[in-house]
Simulated assay, not measured.
Amino acid sequence: MKPEFIPILLNNTQLDYLQSPLWKRISDYQIDQAEVVIPFTRKLAQTEGWTRRFCLMAIEEYKKFVYLCCISKNGASPSIAVDKVWHLHLLYTTEYWKEFCPKILERELHHFPNVGGINDYNKHQDWYLETLKLYINIFRQNPPEPFWRIPKEIELFLLPESENKVKTIKQFTWKKTFEDLHSKVFRYIHGKSVYQ
């Protein structure tokens, strides 16, 4: 069972993630294994209908989430997109439990899903808000909205846009790309400007 929510206080070493050996290991970790026929990224793209670029960026957010889990006494609560990456990673059981956890994280990292009910929902919501605050504090940027839901309660903690290092990224899917292309072709055929 996950511990009760308590506010997180971090030391200077944890706050400077770029100097952290843990962050270095997580950041350098290659989730795609060279010897497999269908690498993790391709499997994630097929499963979720995401583009490769979106998958790679979601994996980077997953790595940040994992780092937050490891440095926080409370752990961290993932966004929906990050949770999808984590779920797929957990399915690669040998890689996750024999390589990633012991060699990269140097600890076990378990998944604690919401078991239902208002109390559990509120507890997970508190963890999620604390995760977003921690994300801003550690990475000195706002969590990118394509990967993280930003509730109203967190808006006071967001950095001004000029300080935010991550530009927003639209999630592209093949369906959306096809619809856009179809719309441009239709307008072209009917003599309307494609770039209206």
Results as ranks from 00 to 15, higher is better:
Leu10Trp: 06
Asn11Cys: 11
Thr13Gly: 10
Thr13Gln: 14
Asp16Asn: 14
Tyr17Pro: 07
Gln19Val: 02
Pro21Trp: 04
Tyr29Met: 06
Tyr29Thr: 09
Ile31Ala: 06
Ala34Arg: 11
Val37Cys: 09
Thr41Asn: 07
Leu44Pro: 05
Phe54Ser: 06
Met57Pro: 07
Ile59Phe: 03
Ile59Ser: 04
Phe65Ala: 07
Phe65Cys: 03
Tyr67Trp: 05
Ile71Trp: 00
Ile71Pro: 00
Ser72Val: 08
Lys73Pro: 11
Ala81Asp: 06
Val82Ala: 04
Lys84Ala: 09
Lys84Asp: 07
Thr93Ala: 11
Tyr96Thr: 07
Tyr96Leu: 10
Trp97Ala: 11
Lys98Pro: 06
Cys101Ile: 05
Pro102Arg: 01
Ile104Tyr: 02
Leu105Ser: 04
Glu106Asn: 12
Leu109Asp: 05
His111Ser: 07
Phe112Arg: 04
Asp126Asn: 13
Leu129Ala: 00
Leu129Met: 01
Glu130Thr: 05
Thr131Phe: 00
Ile136Pro: 01
Ile138Trp: 01
Arg140Asp: 11
Pro144Asp: 06
Glu145Asp: 12
Ile150Ala: 02
Ile150Gly: 00
Glu155Asn: 09
Gln171Met: 15
Trp174Gly: 15
Thr177Cys: 12
Thr177Asp: 05
Asp180Leu: 13
Ser183Met: 11
Ile189Cys: 14
Lys192Thr: 13
Gln196Ala: 14
